[in-house]
Amino acid sequence: MTELEAGRAERLAPASGSAAFQRYRDVLIALIAFAVLACLPLLSGSKALLDFVIRCSAYGLFATSLNLLVGYTGLTSFGHGMFFGLGAYSFGLIMQRLGVPIPVAFVATLAITAVIAAAIGAICVRLKEIYFAFVTLAFQMLIHSMILSWASFTGGDQGLRGGIPRPVFLGIDLANHVHLYVASCALLILGLLAMRQIAQSPFGYTLRMIRDNAARASFLGIDVWRAKLTVFVLAALFASMGGMVMALFVSGAYPEFAYWTISGEGIFINMLGGVSTFLGPMVGTVLLLLLNDTVTRFTEYHGIVLGVVILFFALGLRKGLLDFVAEWFAHRRDAVEGR
């Protein structure tokens, strides 16, 4: 799947304004989004709503980082969830064992993730297509088995219990629900903004070229292996961030966080939202969580409902929701312009 069909590759829009303008526009959108999200607790006292947004932050970071691999680079990772679990476990363990301030644990977790991702990535990105998918899946399950079997350190199948201590730092008290909510939103927005920068940078366009034609990229003097490894590590960092948000939210870490189904959900979220737009995975995250929450409320057989919805997207739309909307707008614009 190195070559996506032409229809799915995003249109290279004619440069409207300078790159600097684009960057300011992204920052502006991010600031507005953050302001809206931060005002939410003032408008509604619903704890369930805030919980929902926190979960969306965790999964949104994870799913969008996976899109850096799947959508932008054409690397279909089936094991991306390992970094979600790794983030949750490293963060939880550091907080429980060392009792350092939260930002220190945060940075330390990112450093650990980067080292492990670089080691695993160096092996994985040599492989192509379906073999890349399988070897990442194998590493995911390897890490999952290690978490299960190293019970004295990780708590085994019971997970990290006893809660993660959340000391107050600079007046931010993450044990407070609203503080945790605002912090999660901030992490989400910052993470999305950073990933957007990566996607729009020359490096991001290098990744697209590798996806569309790796051989040509190589002829142009690009070190394909190094570029793939770089994006593998970068994506792992953001997935790890998502894992940390999740660990803070549930105040623990469970082996399910590192189980391969997390990667499966990530792929599914990407397909649901669409991989050809930057915000597709975010839309997919909200859709899937909404769907899960409503369906589980009405029926115990939510697998059937979820399955039928997936079939509708896969066989009916044949693309993600945001892809569909984007194409529909493009068609309409063409029609209006009389083309």
Binding site: T76, E129, F313
Partner: peptide, 13 residues
């Protein structure tokens, strides 16, 4: 390939 996997995934559920 992702589409095919998705259809199968739906049927697993």
């Amino acid at each position: 390939v992702l589409m095919q996997l998705l259809v199968c995934y739906a049927f697993v559920l």
